[in-house]
Simulated scan of single mutants.
Amino acid sequence: MFDPSLFGRLSFTPAELAKDPLPPGRNRLGIADERDSVLFVPTGLDALGPVPLFVMFHGAGGFPEKVLPFIEEHAERDKFLILAPHSMYPTWDIVVGGSGPDLDRLHRALIEVTSRYRIDRDHLAFAGFSDGASYALSIGITNGDIASHVIAFSGGFMSIFTQEGAPKVFIAHGLNDEQLPIETSGRANATKLKAAGYDVQYIEFNGLHAIQPVIVGMAIQFFLK
């Protein structure tokens, strides 16, 4: 028997609430000495929940603090948690060779978060930008019984060996993307997922390969409705 994690499957089930909530702001979770995951907690959060959780994967060469500013103002206003993992290598394992250490670290981060908060399983998003969007699409569709929403900002590809659940999908891509051409990435991914029966909201915007604040706002509305 193959280890399901080799195909990108998470073995995650929420932990028992056993730890105190974390203070408002950015908190390192302590699951790794280096390249640790960060949890952003908004002020005034009802720690008893259930609380929406937005998992945001950074782009190649990035880090949690690079993508958090695009989401934090929304989390403050709408009172949801942001989990920002940090890839073990310059980009996510699935991009360079298949599921491995990043999937394990994601699992440990989710366990740590759910040991402190009761998560709203109907509002648990896997989201990302660029390589992080490719990772979110791949892991989110593979684990659609865990992720309720999958959000891809300018993603490149999907690596999917098995499909579980039926997450709602949001894909946005720039018409002038100079790194990941829209025809072979955003449009292709949206077409494949729609053909497979997924509920997909697909948006094209006038712009390059970058996170667009207006598009982020639309994605947050999609996530919370």
Rank of each mutant, 00 (worst) to 15 (best):
F126S: 10
F126T: 01
F126V: 00
F126C: 06
G128T: 05
G128I: 00
G128E: 12
G128W: 11
G128H: 08
F129W: 07
F129T: 13
F129N: 01
D131K: 00
D131C: 07
D131G: 15
D131W: 11
D131E: 06
G132Y: 05
G132N: 08
G132W: 13
A133K: 02
A133C: 04
A133M: 04
S134I: 04
S134T: 15
Y135E: 03
Y135A: 01
Y135F: 15
A136D: 06
L137H: 05
L137A: 11
S138Q: 05
I139K: 01
G140I: 05
G140E: 03
G140T: 13
G140R: 13
G140A: 10
T142Q: 08
T142N: 12
T142W: 03
T142K: 11
N143W: 00
N143L: 02
N143Y: 13
G144H: 06
G144R: 00
G144K: 07
G144W: 01
D145E: 11
D145Q: 09
I146T: 11
I146N: 05
I146H: 03
I146Q: 08
I146P: 10
A147E: 04
S148G: 09
H149I: 02
H149R: 10
V150C: 14
V150P: 05
I151T: 08
I151H: 08
A152Q: 13
A152L: 09
F153M: 13
S154R: 05
S154F: 02
G155Q: 07
G155E: 07
G156I: 02
F157R: 11
F157D: 14
M158Q: 05
S159F: 07
I160N: 06
F161A: 12
F161L: 07
F161Q: 14
F161C: 07
Q163D: 12
E164S: 10
E164M: 10
G165H: 10
A166H: 10
P167L: 11
P167S: 03
P167D: 13
P167Q: 00
P167N: 08
K168N: 12
K168W: 03
K168H: 12
V169P: 03
V169R: 01
F170L: 08
F170K: 07
A172E: 15
H173F: 08
G174I: 03
G174H: 01
L175H: 12
L175S: 15
L175Q: 06
N176M: 15
N176R: 15
N176H: 14
N176C: 13
E178L: 09
E178T: 15
E178R: 15
E178F: 06
